[in-house]
Simulated scan of single mutants.
Amino acid sequence: MTLTLRTWDSWNEEVWQQIKPIYEEAFIHGAKPEKIIRQMLDRKIAFLHAGYEGDELVAMALTGLGRSDQQQTMIIDYMAIRHDRRGRGEGRLFFNILRDWGIAHHRIDAIIIEAEAEDTQENRERIIFWEKCGFLPTSYVHHYIWIPETYRALVLPLQPDFQITDDGQSIFAQITDFHERSFRKQKSNTLTDSNKNKV
C-alpha cells in the first residue's frame, strides 16, 4: 500500500469539494465551518492535505504551525481516513507521511494534537491510536468556554532536546492560539511556505 501526499497552502475549491465528504463524515461534531477553513488558508495559517492511493482520495488533514519561542511545532487540527478505508493501517501510514512532510518542509521539533478527554470507549480508542503513533498524553485537561467537551493535548517529540516543562498547559496555549487565529476577523499572515499551493 502506497499513499502520496498533496498539500495546499491556499484555497482550492475543486480540491475542497473532493475532501469535504471525508471531513464532514468524520467530524460531525466540532468541525470548523467551511468559511473558517477557507480564511485559515487565505491567511496562510493552515495547510490542507490530501492522501491518495493512485488517483483515489483516501485521507485528508488540516494542519498549522504553532507559535513558540523555543521550538517549532506542527498542530494537527483534523485528520481523517475515508470511512470505507478504515481499519487497514492507512491512518498510521497517512500520519507518518504528514510527520515527514512537517520535518522536511518546516523542521518541526514536535507535533501536537488535542483529543476529547471524556472517558468514553470512542475517545479511549482515539487516544490509543495516537499513542501507537508515538504521542504522549499530557495530564492537563482544557475547558473551552464555548463548548462543553474537555480536551487533552498529546505531543509527539521529534527532537531529543524537546521538553515539556509543565503539565501540558503550555502546549494547549499553542493550540488555543491557533484556534484564535483561525477565527480572528482581521487578517494575519503568520505562515509562509516556499512551495506554494502544492508540496
Rank of each mutant, 00 (worst) to 15 (best):
residue 120 T to A: 00
residue 111 I to V: 15
residue 143 H to I: 00
residue 117 A to N: 11
residue 140 Y to L: 02
residue 146 W to V: 10
residue 122 E to K: 13
residue 109 D to C: 07
residue 160 P to E: 12
residue 123 N to S: 06
residue 132 K to D: 03
residue 129 F to G: 00
residue 148 P to K: 11
residue 152 R to T: 15
residue 142 H to A: 15
residue 159 Q to C: 06
residue 123 N to I: 05
residue 162 F to V: 03
residue 147 I to F: 09
residue 153 A to G: 14
residue 130 W to E: 01
residue 109 D to K: 11
residue 155 V to Q: 07
residue 140 Y to W: 14
residue 157 P to E: 06
residue 118 E to Q: 15
residue 154 L to E: 13
residue 164 I to P: 06
residue 135 F to G: 01
residue 120 T to W: 02
residue 126 R to Q: 14
residue 155 V to G: 10
residue 119 D to R: 03
residue 145 I to P: 05
residue 161 D to F: 13
residue 108 I to A: 11
residue 145 I to M: 02
residue 134 G to A: 04
residue 159 Q to M: 09
residue 113 I to T: 14
residue 157 P to R: 03
residue 148 P to N: 10
residue 108 I to Q: 11
residue 109 D to R: 04
residue 134 G to L: 09
residue 113 I to C: 10
residue 145 I to D: 10
residue 113 I to R: 08
residue 129 F to V: 00
residue 136 L to H: 09
residue 126 R to L: 15
residue 139 S to N: 13
residue 112 I to M: 14
residue 162 F to Y: 15
residue 133 C to F: 04
residue 116 E to G: 01
residue 156 L to C: 03
residue 163 Q to L: 15
residue 148 P to H: 03
residue 126 R to G: 05
residue 116 E to W: 05
residue 113 I to P: 03
residue 148 P to I: 07
residue 118 E to H: 11
residue 112 I to F: 15
residue 119 D to A: 06
residue 132 K to W: 02
residue 163 Q to E: 15
residue 159 Q to F: 04
residue 142 H to Q: 14
residue 129 F to P: 03
residue 123 N to H: 14
residue 138 T to D: 04
residue 138 T to S: 14
residue 155 V to R: 05
residue 153 A to Q: 07
residue 135 F to E: 02
residue 129 F to A: 01
residue 162 F to K: 05
residue 149 E to I: 05
residue 110 A to C: 14
residue 160 P to N: 08
residue 130 W to P: 00
residue 117 A to K: 04
residue 111 I to G: 07
residue 145 I to G: 12
